[in-house]
Amino acid sequence: MSKNEHKLTQLKALEAESIHIIREVVAEFRNPVMLYSVGKDSSVMLHLARKAFYPAPLPFSLLHVDTGYKFKEMYEFRDSFCKEIGANLIVRRNEDAIAKGMNPKEFGVARCCGALKTKGLLDALEEGEYDAAFGGARRDEERSRAKERVFSMRDEFGQWDPKNQRPELWNIYNGKIHDGESVRVFPISNWTEMDIWSYIREEEIPIVPLYFAKERLMIERGNLLIPYYEETKDQLLEGEEPKMIMSRFRTLGCSPCTGAVHSDATNMDEIVIEAAAARRSERETRIIDHGSNSMEDKKKEGYF
């Protein structure tokens, strides 16, 4: 074989880096868990984890911090896919807040996220006594994430201190922590949205059908397309009328706070082409990011 053939495509180079990170965590931590949000990034991260330990089964559980507000297609996909690959799925919800009827419309997005996601996550991590939690965040998503380490330290309260991060040199990760501390590990830090879609296409990774365009009942609100369900019709604002729109999701979160985009991309080829031509970022359809420092503030408090 000639020298030139010993080259990895950039996706294979990213894959190799991610697998190295995932294995390093399993080697150095007592009780890791993988946060699984059912979205495309989680799907890629899970695929990389399966590759890392093949032919053995995954050496850790998947943890889905559920808000109760995910799209029903996400629940269906989550349950069938985890069963298919034999993964051990743990689902945790902040039942207190859910029982009290926490919702973004009455309590505001920040409070709802704080209760259902951040507190839900911190409680679940504490309950499971996990010392490392894999997350599928990417640095290209949002400007405060661009500053985050691959091994990101969290204090006893699960908080992030962005001004005091450990230097991370070469591919040598420092996994030493004190009792009570933990790390969030981001194996796909260096992947972009374009990489994620291209990799899903190349590897034929199953994803939630909401990512593919079809005629869906939607409410048009400003720039946002909000999916309409019979159960959530009280979310309609005055003068809004649901209509069938050819659309898909670039990113999936909670149904009240995630918008869709106009799209005709019904298969992976078309999605990759659309991603390559996109002029606006995927996070634009996520209400959580709007506001001056919202992601950084949430992350400091422990948000994933």
Binding site: Q10, A146, T192
Partner: peptide
Amino acid sequence: LTDGLSAEREQGITIDVAYRYFATPKRK
């Protein structure tokens, strides 16, 4: 666009390494 942390924007300095991604048809 590149100073991602609130403290950086307040003080007008860059504190931490930020990772940026861009691609041309030849390279990422």
